[in-house]
């Protein structure tokens, strides 16, 4: 009788304890959970993280402070900040957002990948230079070398050519001044300098692009348009910085001809198709192709 009473009391005690614990948990988890007031950016919701990255990239585009941008990205807690930037840029483009918005992200990813600040993008058109004409009016800067040439000019022996007018002689013998040689800017046209079939099963059907400037440094942010009989695709270099800042790729369909246009500079290449390769057993498979474009 006594032990039964004890057991009943113990049971009641445990039940009361459990009910109390349940009430306590309900209050602490549901009614009044711990509130965060000093959150770190790593806890931000994904869409806010995306906006945070855009602001980091925009700030970087303005101040070119790579270590600071790197530190700011680190507090977002991404496993790989470069991948996160590239993926976000690609998501933005896929969603139809203008390239101008995604470009700072791509540039920051590219600079982080290479470890230094690359040449900033110039939103305004790159100035073009015309070769100076011989008949142009000399400017203040041009008068100085001309005066130097005239000082060292030795008059021709006119004594034997008294009947010859003198004025043309001076003009003919003056050494022409060096003319300004324009250098290739971001808008300089690209030319196809390499077209290699890639017989690697891992690159099957892959059309790879590498775009470089005249110094053979890869350039990010160049728009490429690929068209074929059933459609069109457009994309940009630099969204896979782990493969190079000037790298881009596209998946081809077998037996399809593609036309390629590099938007900047207007390069156009026709009738590119996936090559046929043979594996060691002699079986055929569709390979890839590597197209290299370079500015002059």
């Amino acid at each position: 009788m006594m032990s039964r009473l004890l057991r009943s009391s113990l049971l009641h005690f445990i039940l009361a304890l459990l009910i109390g614990a349940g009430l306590g948990l309900a209050y602490s988890w549901q009614i009044s959970p711990v509130t965060y007031v000093d959150a770190a950016p790593a806890l931000l919701r994904e869409d806010f993280k995306d906006q945070y990255r855009i602001i980091i990239a925009d700030a970087y585009a303005a101040n070119q402070n790579l270590p600071r941008a790197q530190a700011r990205l680190n507090i977002l807690g991404d496993a790989n900040p470069i991948d996160a930037l590239s993926a976000q840029a690609q998501r933005m483009l896929a969603a139809g957002e203008p390239f101008e918005l995604a470009r700072p992200l791509a540039k920051l990813a590219s600079d982080l990948q290479q470890g230094f600040v690359s040449e900033p993008f110039t939103p305004t058109a790159f100035p073009t230079f015309n070769t100076p004409q011989a008949a142009s009016t000399p400017t203040a800067n041009e008068t100085q070398p001309q005066a130097r040439e005239e000082a060292t000019f030795t008059p021709p022996p006119t004594v034997f050519f008294e009947q010859t007018p003198l004025s043309p002689i001076t003009q003919e013998t003056v050494t022409p001044r060096p003319t300004f040689t324009p250098t290739a800017g971001p808008d300089a046209p690209f030319t196809l300098v390499g077209q290699e079939p890639m017989c690697d099963p891992g690159a099957s059907n892959l059309m790879q692009f590498i775009l470089t400037d005249s110094r053979r440094e890869q350039i990010a942010g160049v728009e490429i348009i690929v068209t074929w009989n059933q459609g069109e695709d457009r994309f940009f270099t630099g969204f896979k910085p782990e493969l190079g800042n000037g790298y881009a790729d596209f998946i081809m369909q077998p037996n399809t001809l593609y036309n390629i246009r590099i938007v900047t500079g207007g390069a156009f290449v026709q009738d590119i198709s996936a090559p046929t390769c043979n594996d060691p057993n002699g079986a055929e498979y569709t390979g890839g192709i590597l197209l290299t474009f370079q500015q002059p």
């Binding site: 009391s9 009361a16 009910i19 109390g20 614990a21 349940g22 009430l23 306590g24 602490s28």
Partner: peptide, 18 residues
């Protein structure tokens, strides 16, 4: 005793939840 058990349970629950 039961009220004390409930109070102890609540305290434990709050401690765990917070």
């Amino acid at each position: 005793t039961l009220l004390m058990a409930i109070a102890t349970g609540i305290a434990l629950g709050l401690y765990y939840g917070w």
